Computed example of a mutant assay.
Amino acid sequence: MAQWDDLRVFLAVARAESLSRAAPGLRMDAATVGRRIARLERDLGAALFVKSPQGYALTDLGERMRDRAAEAEASLSLALDEARGAGAGDQAGMSGQIRIGAPDGVSNYLLPQVCAAIGADNPGLEIQILALPRVVNLSKREADLAITVSRPQAGRLTVKKISDYHLHLAAPRDAEIRTLDDLQHRRIVGYIPDMIFDKELDYLDELGAQSVQLASNSVSVQAMALRHGAGVGIVHDFALPFAPELKRVLTDSISLTRSLYLVRHTSDRSSERLTRFADRLSQGLRAEIARLEALVA
């Protein structure tokens, strides 16, 4: 019969879709992880994965087992949270591991300093930041909570708005851009069009541009390209203090407002630890957005 440790290994491979990517988090080598999966499949008498050079894809049975194992993992996490709270009192610091999934702009310019402050107050807490150019899948337990730029419309999720934030057109400080016509002969830096994973990240219409001459799926790469004089592009106001070579231009003509949302799996809403962390994270993000935007206002 499969033991919880077997399911833990199975979940890690199911989420990583690879033995080598799952191994570090399990503190095992890839060969050991492979043997554990083979033993589990042998004990069950059924295949959980389809193996290929591209990785490990779940079979139909594997997908059903992943969902049930994830539910068991969540229940175990809640039980441990309750035990920690009962044993340490209401004022105890948070502990254990919490993983946050977020777009790379938030991951690069906001989360490091906010999470550093939370970690300083909670030395027993291990915080992981998962920066992905796509929406984090909480149902697959890729993370404990996610930050998104659109409110999810499906899934067993709880969603709370964190804050609005602002974006403007930015260019090198020596650029002479006074009217929209001045953009006609400027290279546009932005997202790779077919890799925009959220409609709120599609800024081309705001610029009246038809194409992007230098593109990346990473907003941080875009900002670095602008810092090296690659052209003009939309930049988060909260990122500009980290890019002193850039300035906002045409602020009266091009000004965008977007929002950040904190998303959690519904089954986690009774976790006091995650709720405390989510509240502290939201407060920290609101304060940091306000602080950084004030520096460029």
Rank of each mutant, 00 (worst) to 15 (best):
M28F: 05
M28E: 08
T32F: 00
T32Y: 01
V33F: 00
R35C: 02
R36I: 00
I37M: 01
R39C: 01
L40E: 01
L40V: 03
E41L: 00
D43F: 07
L44H: 04
G45T: 02
G45N: 07
L48C: 07
L48S: 02
L48R: 02
P53V: 01
Q54P: 01
Q54V: 05
G55H: 01
A57K: 14
A57R: 15
A57D: 12
T59Y: 03
T59A: 04
D60T: 13
D60F: 13
L61G: 04
D67M: 08
R68H: 11
A69P: 00
A70L: 14
E71Y: 09
E73F: 13
A79G: 11
L80P: 01
D81L: 05
E82H: 14
E82W: 04
E82V: 15
A83F: 04
R84L: 15
R84S: 09
A86D: 13
A88P: 04
A88H: 13
A88G: 12
A88M: 08
G89N: 08
A92L: 12
G93D: 07
S95C: 12
S95W: 07
G96H: 09
Q97F: 08
R99H: 06
R99F: 10
I100E: 03
G101R: 02
A102S: 12
A102F: 03
V106T: 14
S107I: 01
N108Q: 11
Y109P: 00
L110G: 02
L111S: 02
L111A: 03
Q113K: 09
C115L: 09
I118W: 02
G119E: 05
G119P: 05
A120G: 10
D121L: 14
P123G: 09
G124Y: 10
G124R: 12
E126N: 12
I127P: 06
Q128P: 03
Q128G: 13
I129F: 06
A131E: 06
V135T: 13
V135F: 08
S139R: 12
S139T: 12
K140L: 13
A143E: 03
A143K: 02
A143Y: 05
D144A: 04
A146C: 03
V149L: 15
A154C: 12
A154F: 11
R156G: 15
T158A: 10
S163Y: 03
D164V: 07
D164K: 10
H166S: 13
H168W: 14
H168R: 11
L169N: 04
A171T: 07
